[in-house]
Amino acid sequence: MSRAPALPSGRWHAAEAIPWLLAIACFFLFPGYRVLASHVFIAALFALSLDLVLGYAGILTLGHAAFFGLGAYTAGLLAAHGWGEPFSGLALAAAVAALGGLAVSFLVVRGTDLARLMVTLGVGLLLYEAANRAAWLTGGVDGLSGVAMGKLFGVFPFDLFGNAAYAYTLAVLFALFVFTRRVAASPFGLSLRAIRENRARMPALGAPVERRLVAAFTLGAAIAGVAGALLAQTTQFVGLDTLAFHRSADVLVMLVLGGAGRLYGALVGTAVFMVAQDRLAGIDPVYWQFWLGLLLVAIVFVARGGILGAADALRRRLRR
């Protein structure tokens, strides 16, 4: 019998250490950028959650910020009402966002791409306005203040320089990356890829497609909620913009830029997007979005599969 070719094994390659070592090195190399870096890690986790939903399960969404915001407000409200322990805050935020995701998932798993876009967009707008109107709870446009975080492990306080925030957000990002990576290499991950490739074929294999999509969407929402909670905890503030449409749009752009369905695309896309945003705004403070737009269009046309997709194609060509 022929030897079986490789299948998703979840085994680590040596090169995969590079981004994580780089992230640790940046802590020492750029001490002035620790706060910004923690925001990059949070955005990367958010993009990673979208990769499960879009890159693996193939569910197009323009309202993923709804779950980011749910997580942020959950963690923020807990801390504002005396529950400042960070890890339990994360867990509760994940649970609330997962419940939100579960509820919304039933609306999105059946529809077409267009219907999904509209439903997710609608849910995002609904939650945004609900948070705006419920000012007694959320602080409305002024945001939720009075978020008082406890110390990490009861030892490390969240300081202004972002030292604890840097380590905390990076560690949570890494832990959830390992988890997501494992899911992606599992039979469940394989079945999600198959649904993305040919949804109509899956029932003929005996697959309950909608149930799988509900699970993927709920899991993606839970991780988005953790990302939102991290932002609330490390900035000790929750604003309405955690639920804003632009956040859903930005995270979609980051993921597509890096390459959807590859996990690392979420990390690379987020880093490139946020650094480009920072640099372009420095070069051209008024019209920087013009250049960002140009970059995005160029990426979609020149590099199919995002930056990592282009890197893959280049590597294949060089090998030939």
Binding site: P5, P8, F188, A215
Partner: peptide
Amino acid sequence: GGLTVLESVVLAILEREGRAALWRRPVA
């Protein structure tokens, strides 16, 4: 289209066995 031949058939077998929703163990 994007799955390999082996991945496709392994998936079909996992679906038959009701094990395609497992997430803790890699396909390999």
